[in-house]
Design a binder for these strands. Structure first.
Lengths: 199, 199, 199, 199
DNA sequence: GATGAATGAGTATTCATTCAT
DNA sequence: TATGAATGAATACTCATTCAT
């Protein structure tokens, strides 16, 4: 019955965004279940009541926060890919993409932990995750075609390459281990990705 | 004041195990935060009070449950690896390992989702995850040495291979997508793993 | 500080009336405590803010609504009574009055339920109820005198008669029971009322 | 999911009763919507939590409270009726019944107001009211038969008589008016009830 | 006068944990 | 040891009322 308003006025849009940002920030720091709506409102600098004019319930805030998180994480990687226009030096360029990915994962490491956890807590959030991944892989395929790489099973190979970069980024951020030679991990990953697309 | 007893008597050990099993079962089905201790006690067939004689608090049950889960997931993979004793047909054997991994992930898919989420909710749980991964990679290295594979950067390569199999298993269980040729994913993964160790 | 204005302009009077009507309508349907001021404003076609320029608070709307309700219920009964000018056929005329009462109670049954409940929730509302009853009984007395009925204890007898018709009307509207012969209830009530005034 | 326990142990039954009594008391004083569960618990001398082990929700407390109220109101009237065993002096005995009814209504006047209001707020509560009335009228019929009164339309007549006594009791309790001769109201009511059954 | 966005106090209900028995 | 009744702190959400525009 209490209708959810989609804000039109600039100030309202800003307010809604502040709430999303506050949600993303606190969810990332303490987890969804350990965050209260009162806290979100406080950090966003609004009253608790107004939250429920822009969002159906607490989970609705989470959904918007996750969306924003994915944009924040994947868009820069996609942009980085788009900078590459020809296949002059695959190794170096792939290394650059990996660097961006690692940097972004590192910058969002706590948030990322939480977002992954959240995507496992709720089907709606999980769906957002899947869709987001689809989109990034689609972009990878387009990128590869744009640099004249044309092989069989493009999608499947993009999947594997994407997973390798993701795994590697996680390795860097979450498993920092003294016994591991991380430079080698990168160079070996590049070598393998090359082995995928350039036989 | 309320001391946590480490059960000695057989019946007590069984009781503690029942609680862990009940916890693992319900956490896996509904998530940690949506599970009440009363529910765990009921499923375990004990009183709510007794739970707090064997476990410090609710999270303590989770820790034991996660440990049990990892044993349940990784031990069979390790066993499968140990069956392989020589490098007669690497491709076929690796495919068999992948099959086991996928099967186990599938069998535990809901639980696995939850356990991953949980490992992100709490540093203690996360630590368990890391340690568990270390152990499995150690076993992989031992296995590789046992079949006379001896290359540089053994650990790093084992890491990459392990991640590839994990990613692939997740792909199978969580992202089932009609447009993807899963057989190809497997064969390509085997080919790449071979490319890692057998140059 | 916020002064309650008594509207003077025609448009303002209409606006105030719209709010009262909306209040009466929704209070009747869902009850005072389940009705929000926002809802009343929406149904009245005004903003939530303006409500507080015409009414002190939510209860103030209720008071006006109850007043309007009583007018709506009792005025027609009084009018009906006034149609009767002589005591030609007491039975038939009393039956006609009862019919009007039942019809009105039926037409307002849901509203009536709520109004009774409300008159018990608040002394101010209860007072309105009492006064309203006084007025109708006064009219009954006047009516009886106008048809040359002149007995002792006129007021007390009018009370009893009024209560009998009220009880009967409620019986019809709220207790519809298959085992009860309602025609007999009416004729017996008429007979008893006659026994009150015409010995 | 959180199961409602039906208390078996004596202490638990007492506790449940204390909550019902507290509910009845405060609902009667301040109304259902102005009463908080915390308040009920406090008055009952229990914690807020325990309330929800014995009652599904707040309304569930109300239902039990209303039941108890009806028992408290109607049982004594029924008992009074049962004391009368023969038709020696109808007038005097009926007056005695009326006195008891008035006394009970007076003793419960505030509670009664609220209970009536409540029976209009919720269909379940209303149903309890109807059933309770059915029962009391059934008892009146039995009583009348037991003193060898045997007329046509017994039920309908009992209805009318019951309503007259109820109306009268309300008149006494809620409308105390200086201009009304209450003794006459009683004697006239007795006269009319006699006119119903003893023609 | 009018709007409707914003406020924030208020509340039913849950659940980890304790404790009398 | 074991029970399960009892505790009470914690929290999402609502809504009468205000106020900047």
């Amino acid at each position: 019955m209490p209708e959810i308003r989609e804000p039109i006025k600039q100030t309202s849009i800003e307010k809604k965004n502040k709430i999303i940002d506050a949600g993303l920030k606190i969810f990332s720091e303490k987890g969804y279940y350990n965050t209260t709506t009162a806290e979100i409102a406080k950090v966003a600098g609004v009253s608790t009541g107004i939250v429920y004019q822009y969002f159906k319930d607490k989970k609705d805030i989470l959904i918007y926060a996750v969306k924003k998180y994915y944009d924040r994480l994947f868009n820069p990687i996609a942009s980085e890919l788009e900078k590459i226009t020809k296949l002059s030096d695959f190794d170096e360029q792939m290394k650059s993409v990996i660097d961006v990915s690692i940097k972004l994962h590192r910058a969002n490491s706590v948030a990322h932990e939480e977002m992954i956890a959240m995507s496992h807590l709720d089907p709606d959030i999980h769906q957002l995750f899947i869709e987001s991944e689809h989109r990034i892989i689609e972009r990878i395929v387009q990128f590869l075609e744009s640099i004249d790489i044309d092989v069989d099973h493009m999608h499947e190979k993009a999947h594997i390459a994407y997973n390798m970069v993701e795994s590697l980024s996680h390795e860097f951020v979450y498993h920092q281990d003294d016994d591991v030679d991380y430079d080698f991990l990168v160079s070996e990953t590049v070598r393998l990705i090359k082995a995928i697309f350039v036989n």
